[in-house]
């Protein structure tokens, strides 16, 4: 564990806490893409298969449980909670995310580290996470003005993988045998997808104005 990875995990945790706060405090999920939340739940479920078989550390196990639990809770909330689900902007959340699942799974069957069930699902979860934010970004552009907590949620979610990129650079130079190209390339693509969001987020922060994404 290095400082970059810890910062990345904490930033990721903060993004989830901000989203939970928004949904709990405002009893509303307006502006949040259910499709992105479903993709993230799938990412965690296919990545943390080793939760019950390989014990790495208390931290590792606890964080996996938190990520799986929170993502499923958010999906449940947006689908079933009698108050929250009414504020879900179904007509704005129209990205065909099933294509993302199919495309990333096809890629995982072609590009993987080892051709085993768990490695294929791990590669699938890595590729899927890279594109999981697309429905949310598209929805933000459609919904025009972005409320404060939603903007912070997306910002922290994008920032966490940037810390992981620093972690992979650090591990590459400090650990002889460390190569994880699939995660590195996918993490770069993932962070790049946030580039324009980060730009508009920075502009809104500098001008102390409301975050607005161009349609």
């Amino acid at each position: 564990m290095n400082i970059f990875r810890l910062a990345g995990d904490m930033t990721h945790l903060i993004s989830i806490l901000v989203l939970l706060l928004k949904i709990y405090a405002t009893k509303s999920c307006s502006g949040i893409s259910l499709k992105t939340q479903e993709l993230y739940a799938l990412v965690f479920l296919t990545r943390y298969l080793d939760l019950l078989t390989d014990f790495i550390s208390i931290y590792n196990t606890v964080m996996k449980l938190v990520f799986i639990g929170s993502s499923l809770a958010i999906v449940w909330c947006m689908r079933r909670h009698r108050v929250v689900r009414r504020s879900y902007d179904k007509e704005l959340d129209t990205f065909r995310h099933y294509f993302l699942i199919a495309a990333t799974f096809a890629l995982a069957v072609l590009v993987y580290e080892k051709f085993t069930f768990r490695e294929i699902l791990w590669a699938f979860s890595i590729y899927l996470e890279a594109v999981a934010i697309l429905p949310q970004l598209v929805m933000l552009q459609r919904s025009g003005n972005v409320d404060n907590l939603t903007g912070k949620y997306v910002f922290f979610l994008g920032a966490y993988r940037a810390f992981y990129i620093l972690n992979w650079i650090y591990r590459y130079f400090t650990e002889a045998r460390f190569t994880r190209w699939i995660a590195c390339v996918s993490g770069l693509v993932q962070t790049a997808l946030y580039a324009d969001f980060f730009y508009y987020y920075f502009i809104s922060w500098k001008n102390n104005a409301k975050l607005k994404l161009p349609a």
Partner: peptide
């Protein structure tokens, strides 16, 4: 044992 599944990152 070096777990074949050496994914120690989240």
């Amino acid at each position: 044992a070096a777990a074949s599944f050496d994914k120690d990152e989240l």
